[in-house]
Design a protein around this nucleic acid. Structure first.
Length: 648
RNA sequence: GCUGCUGUAGCUCAGAGGUAGAGCACUCCCUUGGUAAGGGAGAGGUCGAGAGUUCAAUUCUCUCCAGCAGCACCA
């Protein structure tokens, strides 16, 4: 038999018969390793212990201690074990797919009866039974027809469809957990007992479309989380609990920032504290835009459908627009209008006033543009996905050869703002030409390259989303993460050669001829609403001092201090600090507790001592210590802290 | 929009086929207390909306509305 050479991580190489499996290699090293091994990495590829190795290779054996591989296998095996448990419990259930995801896995089932939350416990128990049986995991390679026949006979149409979708005619791999079979690429563990039975949990049931297609069957998806040990599971569940406390919807209520109600779904009633954050943020962004060479405009809310027809939005997004019809009795002529779902067409109208020269470009036009979109009911989410929102919108009208420079400038602009607002952890995605698109391939080549290069020039990596671009041009998306790890697109910059064409924007070039400008749609925050939601979650409500809606509460300890409390408040306010008095007939403990829960960054307590010494007792949010300082010092310190970072 | 779940006092929630309860918040009284809840009293609800079943519905059924989780969507 032919020999092959396997090189281990320590650099040693040994010779084995060709076709040796990692399981045999492990057994050859020691019986304990043979027991503990879960998989191998062979030539950089995650490899099942049962798969033969036919050529000279590098090999590393894994145990449960190798988190990356262990998690993948545990989660993947649990997906199979769960599917088996479900089919044993409810044999009429059809199986589909069950991939590994962050922290766990899910599996989609087709079953007439809905799963109930109680079912999760039943399934979990069944899964533990399967794990305890320590049943072997085996694998075979089947030819396609055999697989198709098998699933056809077993009435598993989804599996048949999956096989049909696998390109080529290469043979297919099958896995068995005990005698339960699933089509699967692998790798898997050696037996079900290798899954730690105490380190997983079924989390939730939800609907999901077969193959992600809303025209197809709605399946039932069960989500689970799994880790290599009980402690890690506990940590994860703990983290989720903590994250729930940072939910902007919860904090928004607790801090009195805003509310929403049935009569205006997807729209926000901003309360004084929330609106304070909003206006502070807006003031800040406006200063940045002024510095960044933008001109600010404001355009109509209600615009005749004719403009939307011209821009193409009427065709494509009519169902998602708020249509406004004016009663004929009261209007001179009947017109159909729409609340603007976006600002771009209006900005082109402003651009189109008067002849523009190449000397006017790049023209950076900004608007805090209030938009209304009739978002599908299921898409609404707190203040992050709403029907009425305001974008920090902007359109840069420029020549094609200015795209890259303007994009680079924008990335720099955005990075500074995100840093000022406390975000360091954000990602860029570059979405490229979709199948259905307008414009020549050369133009697309140029536009995509410009965006990508600008990114790299600014020192940022990006994730490539092929085919995800808009039909009119590629885009960069700047993504932030919320409390529980969901990602949200906030900033964006998109190249658009389409709208200037449709709305006939032009400028006179150096050659004296008319040219089409390119439009760069761009936003830093995306929308104030979404961004404030993220901001609240990122800071767990403890906003940076300059953005905190309530900065200082001056609390009396005895009523004898009331007059001095008011004096302190006035002194602070004179320095532009948002200070308020709390001279209620309550104990200082009570006041401290209440304002701490309200996320007030600084509590100044004053009693007899402070009145006499003209001092205040300073207590910072999240810190139990207090320090007595002179009113003068505190005022100075807080005034500095209250200054927005761009004005320091 | 789809699947599932939820909707009771300002908030967080309990409850049962016979028109409702707790804690906190609120109002008043007592208390002037030194850094995360002092004590007492009071007020507060068409039980999301509409229809049906029933002697009787907030409770059961249906429809609608809104919210939550996920999916789909996101110009």
């Amino acid at each position: 038999m032919a020999q092959i050479s396997l090189t281990f991580p320590d650099g040693n190489a040994r010779s084995f018969d060709a076709g040796v499996t990692p399981a045999q290699v492990a057994a050859d090293i020691s019986t304990s390793l043979a027991k503990k091994a879960i998989s191998a990495t062979v030539n950089g590829q995650h490899w099942d212990l049962q798969w033969p190795i036919d050529t000279d290779s590098t090999i590393a054996l894994h145990t449960l201690k190798d988190d990356a591989q262990a998690n993948e296998l545990i989660r993947h095996d649990l997906a199979h074990i769960m599917a088996r448990a479900v089919q044993e419990l409810w044999p009429d259930t059809k199986v589909t797919i069950g991939p590994v995801i962050k922290d766990g896995w899910y599996y989609d089932f087709d079953r007439a009866e809905p799963f109930t939350p109680e079912d999760l416990g039943v399934i979990e128990k069944k899964m533990r039974d399967i794990i305890n049986k320590r049943e072997p995991v085996t694998t075979e390679v089947w030819d396609r027809q055999r697989a198709i026949d098998f699933y056809t006979n077993n009435n598993e149409p989804y599996k048949v469809e999956l096989i049909d979708a696998i390109p080529g005619d290469e043979p297919l791999r099958m896995y068995w957990h005990g005698d339960w079979q699933d089509l699967c690429r692998g790798p898997h563990l050696q037996h079900t007992g290798q899954v730690p039975g105490d380190s997983f949990k079924l989390m939730s049931i939800a609907g999901a479309y077969w193959r992600g297609d809303s025209d197809r069957a709605m399946l039932q998806r069960i989500y689970g989380v799994a880790f290599t040990g009980k402690e890690k599971l506990k940590q994860h569940l703990n983290m989720l609990e903590e994250a729930a406390k940072r939910d902007h919807r919860k904090l928004g209520k607790e801090m009195g920032l805003f509310h929403m109600q049935e009569e205006a779904p997807g729209q926000i009633f901003w309360h004084p504290n929330g609106w304070r954050i909003y206006t502070l943020l807006q003031d800040y962004i406006r200063r940045q835009q002024d510095r960044g060479g933008y001109v600010e405009v404001n355009t109509p809310q209600v615009v005749d459908r004719k403009l939307w027809e011209k821009s193409g939005h009427w065709d494509k997004y009519q169902e998602n627009m708020f249509i406004v019809e004016v009663d004929e009795d009261h209007a001179r002529e009947k017109a159909v209008n729409a609340l603007k779902p976006m600002n771009c067409p209006c900005h082109v109208q402003v651009f189109n006033q008067g002849l523009k020269s190449y000397r006017d470009l790049p023209l950076r036009m900004a608007e805090f543009g209030s938009c209304a979109r009739y978002e599908p009911s299921g898409a609404l989410h707190g203040i992050m996905r709403v029907r009425g929102f305001t974008q920090d919108d902007g359109h840069i009208f420029c020549a094609e050869d200015q795209i890259e420079a303007e994009t680079a400038l924008f990335i720099d602009f955005l990075s500074k703002i995100y840093a000022d607002l406390g975000f360091t952890d954000w990602t860029i995605k570059l979405s490229t030409r979709p199948e259905k698109r307008i414009g020549s391939d050369e133009t697309w080549d140029h536009m995509e390259k410009a965006l990508g290069e600008a990114c790299r020039a600014a020192g940022h990596d990006y994730e490539l989303l092929e085919g995800e671009g808009a039909f009119y041009g590629p885009k960069l998306e700047f993504t932030l993460t919320d409390a529980i790890g969901r990602t949200w697109q906030c900033g964006t910059i998109q190249v658009d050669a389409n709208l200037p064409e449709r709305l006939d924007a032009s400028f006179i070039g150096q050659d004296g001829n008319k040219h089409r400008p390119v439009m760069l749609h761009r936003a830093v925050l995306g929308s104030f609403e979404r961004f404030i939601g993220i901001l609240i979650e990122e800071h767990a409500g403890k906003l940076p001092f300059w953005l905190a809606p309530r900065q200082v509460v001056v609390a009396s300890i005895t009523s004898d201090a009331d007059a001095y409390v008011n004096e302190v408040v006035e002194t602070l306010r004179a320095q532009g600090i948002r200070a308020e008095a709390d001279i209620r007939n309550e104990k200082i403990n009570y006041k401290v507790r209440e304002h701490s829960l309200g996320k007030v960054p600084v509590i100044l307590a004053v009693g007899h001592r402070e009145v006499e010494e003209r001092t205040v007792s300073v207590r910072r949010l999240g810190d139990k210590r207090t320090s007595v300082q002179s009113l003068e010092d505190v005022t100075k310190t807080l005034a500095t802290e209250a200054t927005p970072p761009d004005l320091l």
